[in-house]
Design a protein around this nucleic acid. Structure first.
Lengths: 155, 155
DNA sequence: TCAAAGTAGTTGGTTTTACCACCTACTATA
DNA sequence: TATAGTAGGTGGTAAAACCAACTACTTTGA
């Protein structure tokens, strides 16, 4: 039996996701990024995926990822590098400028999350983090994880 | 100290929001809606806001809401009605067709949430719902709630 | 009491970012 | 080695966001 002010799991999750996306959107906009562009940089912090892997992870059409990477590359945030032996394929890596940008944005997002969590007690934060991690893991597994190489040796 | 597989609050919230938005996006797309259009219908389930109130709640420019409502109205999901005495203003109401659509979509979204929550134990679901509700309430308060009339008498 | 200022909503123009269908270049298979 | 398949890109279209300017109405204050 949900307590006073409890929205129920379905509504609470939906509204929570809007609150978090709002925070992400504000932070991204402050750096002239869209949410998806910010997400791209976040992914590239510790990965060098191919276009196809990005498309699968971001749930976008590969031609959308082409455009996404194009725009980030024009701004010098990202670089296309040759992938191993398959000469059709490309790996996307973050540049120093991109790294700096995503670091700044991440710090700002941390402040936004702190604001969102102001009313939570420490134990609740810990629980939220743990439970959300389980949900995220379940979702990744269910979507057929497409876990790509992490931290391959820099070119 | 976060346990094994714990992403930390910041990452866990961000990724959770993407998982939930993905589910919302799939459900919306299955009914030829965007996420925002679905959100509009969700709001209208029990409210008759003005364009301005919608803009503030959805964090959109009012001209964007004009377009959003236009498209929904063209599909017969929504209706503009005269607001009280202020003849500049308009109240947006859901139609029967819109109601049916949002009911179907809501049911599908519930299944998606059930999938996301498969790995959670009952107590964890309860906690997630409660904690998320607190966060959502804090966010609404912080944004300067603009709570609009709920269930005003139908015209 | 009525002119000026303010507000709700729309219009028009622009931009961004998706999508799809198709194309090229390369790789794997029979 | 012809043929299938796959990675990525192109070109065209559409949705949805923004801003600035406009209309119609309401509020204010001299």
């Amino acid at each position: 039996m949900p307590g006073e002010g409890d929205l129920g799991l379905v509504d609470a999750l939906a509204q929570l996701s809007f609150a978090v996306q709002g925070a992400l959107g504000r932070v991204a906009a402050a750096h002239d990024l869209s949410i998806v562009q910010g997400r791209l940089l976040g992914i590239l912090r510790d990965r060098r995926p191919t276009i196809k892997e990005l498309a699968s992870f971001l749930q976008l059409d590969k031609s959308s990822v082409t455009g996404l990477v194009d725009r980030a590359e024009e701004r010098g945030l990202v670089r296309r590098t040759a992938a191993g032996h398959d000469r059709r394929s490309v790996r996307v890596a973050i540049t120093t400028a991109g790294q700096e940008l995503v670091d700044r944005a991440t710090a700002e997002f941390e402040s936004e999350v702190a604001l969102l969590a102001t009313d939570l007690r420490p134990a609740q934060r810990t629980r939220l983090s743990a439970i959300a991690s389980v949900v995220v893991a379940a979702d990744a597994r269910r979507r057929g994880i497409d876990i790509f190489e992490v931290d391959p040796p820099p070119a």
